[in-house]
């Protein structure tokens, strides 16, 4: 490693401190929640929700351009609108199976495509904010909004608290919903709360990092952790650690190599995934060789 680059990086502490904090916290909480997303085989829910979140932000930018809505300017906040829309999408997904009975894949595909299509249309209409929209989609922002340094950790703490209390129950309804129903567990409520925490976390982290890196942080650390360990509690611990490392290393390389931040985080998470695959293949090989 080039020591002068590293020294320069350390000296520029004031520049990367906030994005690094937001990135690391986002990596931790997305890594944690991603374990449920992967185990429940709803990986593309992460993609759909982060895209819906982007749609909320883009819609807010668009609505802010209408003078007729000037009275509601404070209400048309990109963060608030993206939170409401992502929450609504998560709620719809959680309740779909019982009320609408559309296939999960159908809901995910529809939600993702509709949100993506509208974001592109809006980006075409509001050329002056097109750069902001590109940041939201691909996470190329190097700096973060100062309030996100507080919002992202606060949301992460609330999510972790909920998951701390209901950890056993979320695992139970994810693994064996039939028995959970028989035991009179509130399966529908638990599923809804679980997906809402995923939705809210994706909404706030997408606003801070961008849709692409958030999708990567939801999916790849959890998948990597499943390669590395066969103990459920350790899967959560490792997914959090890999999420943090992916975000931190992504920011570091983005800083010293002048790479787009979101793409750099996504690539870091992908490299951890590849290392996980190699580790698992090596373990399988040694098992087959040595019994």
């Amino acid at each position: 490693m080039d020591t002068s680059s590293f020294g320069e990086f350390i000296r520029s502490y004031f520049l990367w401190r906030d994005p690094m904090i937001v990135g690391a916290v986002s990596g931790a909480i997305c890594g944690f929640l991603g374990v449920y997303v992967v185990l429940r085989r709803i990986v593309f829910v992460g993609a759909m929700l982060s895209q819906v979140s982007s749609f909320g932000v883009a819609l807010a930018f668009y609505l802010q351009g209408f003078s007729a809505l000037s009275l509601f300017q404070s209400l048309i906040d990109p963060f608030a609108l993206s939170l409401v829309m992502t929450g609504a999408a998560a709620l719809f997904f959680a309740l779909n199976r019982e009320f609408f009975r559309i296939s999960q894949e159908g809901v995910i595909g529809f939600g993702y495509l509709l949100a993506s299509g509208i974001v592109v249309i809006i980006a075409d209409r509001i050329t002056h904010e097109a750069h902001d929209i590109a940041d939201i989609l691909f996470g190329s922002a190097v700096v973060v909004d100062p309030k996100e340094v507080y919002i992202v950790p606060a949301v992460a703490i609330v999510a972790i608290l909920i998951h701390w209390i209901f950890f056993k129950d979320f695992i139970f309804v994810s693994f064996d919903p039939e028995t959970a129903r028989l035991f009179k567990y509130p399966v529908r409520i638990l599923n809804t709360v679980l997906l809402l925490t995923v939705g809210v976390v994706i909404a706030v982290t997408t606003r801070a990092l961008g849709a692409l890196p958030v999708f990567a942080l939801v999916v790849l650390p959890a998948l990597t952790a499943l390669f590395l360990t066969e103990k459920l509690n350790w899967v959560f611990v490792l997914a959090v650690l890999i999420g943090i490392l992916s975000a931190v290393l992504g920011y570091y390389f983005s800083f010293i190599l002048s790479l787009p931040t979101g793409a750099s985080i996504t690539t870091s998470a992908s490299l951890f995934f590849l290392l996980g695959v190699i580790w698992q293949q090596g373990r399988l090989l040694s098992r087959s060789k040595f019994g």
């Binding site: 209901f166 129950d169 064996d176």
Partner: peptide
């Protein structure tokens, strides 16, 4: 009935049978 993607141990699986007597949140 069970998805093999879950790394659930035998002891953890048996403990789930006890959940009928353990309230939500405990």
């Amino acid at each position: 009935n069970f998805d093999h993607i879950f790394p659930i141990s035998v002891a953890e699986f048996v403990a789930m049978g006890k959940y009928i007597r353990i309230p939500v949140g405990r």
